[in-house]
C-alpha cells in the first residue's frame, strides 16, 4: 500500500541528478518497477517496450505510488520517452523530461548543465527551494555520503558482504531520505556478520540494467555464486561519488560528473565505439570474478544492440559470460536458476 511521503519527487533512471533534487529540498524517490497492481500498461504502451517502463506505468495506473510532488524522466532511451508520454496522459500532474546527451563531450556537458538549470527551475515551481550554489554543494555532499557508505559496504572488511545485502541497501537508499538511508546502511554493517571470505563459491560479476531488489541477487547467490561486484542501474550506478571541490560546485560540474560517471549501454564515447565490452571485461577481471552474468530487461535496445559484441569480446578473452533476460521480477530470475547453476558449475 502506498504511504504518503510528502516532499518526494519520483524518478525512474539512474542518470537522474539526485544531488539537485536534494538541493531543492525534495527527497528523490525511485519508482521501482515492482508492483502487485494489475498489468494494464499495455493499453497505452506497446508490448514491445521493456518491462521496466511498463511496470512503472502499472504503478501509476494502480495508484501504487506514494504522494509525490512530481516525476522526473530522463531522456535515456525511446521507452523512457514513451513512458513520460503515457505517464503524462494517464496520471498527469507535474512531469519533467530532462534531455540527456549520449556522451560527455564538452558541448554535451554544457547542454546538460543547462538542462539541470532548467530542472532546478521546474523543481522550484513544484514548491522546492531555489537551488543556490550552497544548496547544490550540500546536495552533492549528501549524495556523496550515501555513495561512500554504500562503497563501504562493497569493500566491507575483511571480506565483503553478500551481494544481496548490498543490493538491499541500494534499494533502501533509492527510496528514502538521506538520513534514513544512511541509518539503514549503518544498521546493515552493525547487524550482519555475513562473511563470505571462506566461501568457495565462484565469484561472479553481475552487470546489465534493471535487476530489481535484493531477491534477484539473492537468487543468483542461492544458486551458488558469490556476487563480487555488480554494475546495474538499480545498484552501484545509482549513487555516483562526485569529486569536486566546494568552489567548483556548479551545474556544469554536476553535468560533467553524471555524464562521465559509470555508464550503461546508452551512453558511450564515440571515439571508443563498443567500449562497453572492454569496460565490463575489465570490471570482471578487476573484481577477480571467474565469470560474469549480464542481466537485462527484455526489449532493451541499448543492450540488445551491444550484447553481440560484448559476448564476442568475453569469448575471445576467455571470460565466461551468461546472458539473461528478465521482466523485472524475481520470478523471472527464478526461471533462469537452472541456467545459472549450470553456469556456476562450469566456473568451479
Amino acid at each position: 500500500m502506498s504511504r504518503p511521503i510528502p516532499g518526494h519527487v519520483g524518478y525512474a533512471c539512474s542518470y537522474t541528478p539526485l544531488a539537485l533534487v536534494l538541493a531543492s529540498g525534495f527527497t528523490p524517490y525511485r519508482v521501482l518497477p515492482v508492483t502487485s497492481g494489475p498489468d494494464q500498461a499495455g493499453l497505452h504502451l506497446h508490448d514491445n517496450l521493456c518491462p521496466h517502463v511498463k511496470r512503472i506505468l502499472d504503478r501509476a495506473l494502480a495508484g501504487d505510488l506514494p504522494d509525490m510532488a512530481g516525476m522526473i524522466f530522463m531522456n535515456s532511451c525511446d521507452p523512457m520517452r514513451r513512458l513520460a508520454d503515457a505517464w503524462t496522459k494517464v496520471k498527469g500532474g507535474n512531469v519533467a523530461m530532462v534531455d540527456l546527451p549520449v556522451n560527455g563531450l564538452s558541448r554535451s556537458v554544457d547542454f546538460f548543465a543547462r538542462e539541470l538549470g532548467r530542472l532546478a527551475g521546474i523543481l522550484e515551481s513544484w514548491g522546492g527551494d531555489p537551488v543556490t550554489p550552497k544548496r547544490l554543494a550540500s546536495g552533492i555532499a549528501a549524495t556523496n555520503e550515501i555513495a561512500n557508505a554504500l562503497a563501504g559496504l562493497e569493500n566491507h572488511p575483511p571480506c565483503g558482504l553478500g551481494g544481496s545485502v548490498i543490493y538491499e541497501a541500494y534499494t533502501a537508499c533509492a527510496t528514502s531520505p538521506p538520513a534514513e538511508a544512511l541509518a539503514f546502511v549503518k544498521g546493515i554493517v552493525g547487524s550482519r556478520s555475513t562473511s563470505m571470505a571462506d566461501s568457495d563459491a565462484p565469484k561472479v560479476f553481475v552487470f546489465g540494467n534493471v535487476l530489481v531488489g535484493s531477491e534477484a541477487i539473492n537468487l543468483i547467490e542461492a544458486c551458488g555464486a558469490r556476487v563480487a561486484l555488480e554494475d546495474t542501474c538499480m545498484g552501484s550506478r545509482m549513487f555516483r561519488r562526485m569529486e569536486m571541490a566546494e568552489g567548483e560546485v556548479s551545474f556544469t560540474a554536476l553535468a560533467r560528473a553524471i555524464l562521465s560517471g559509470k555508464a550503461c549501454a546508452r551512453t558511450f564515447d564515440p571515439a571508443r565505439p563498443g567500449g562497453i565490452a572492454l569496460d565490463m571485461l575489465e570490471a570482471a577481471r578487476g573484481c577477480g570474478a571467474r565469470g560474469a552474468i549480464c542481466h537485462t530487461a527484455k526489449f532493451c535496445d541499448p543492450y540488445l544492440s551491444r550484447l553481440p559484441h560484448i559476448r564476442e569480446v568475453f569469448r575471445k578473452e576467455g571470460m565466461p559470460l551468461l546472458v539473461l533476460e528478465g521482466d523485472c521480477t524475481a520470478r523471472s530470475i527464478g526461471q533462469h536458476s537452472t541456467r545459472i547453476e549450470a553456469f556456476l558449475e562450469m566456473l568451479r
Binding site: 549520449v102 564515440p270 565505439p273 540488445l304
Partner: peptide, 22 residues
Amino acid sequence: TGGLGVIENLARHFGKPLFVLN
C-alpha cells in the same frame, strides 16, 4: 535508440571515425 546502437556497432566493425549528433 536502436539506430544509434547500430551506428556505434558499424563504426567499430569498420574501424572508422564516428561522430554523434545529440
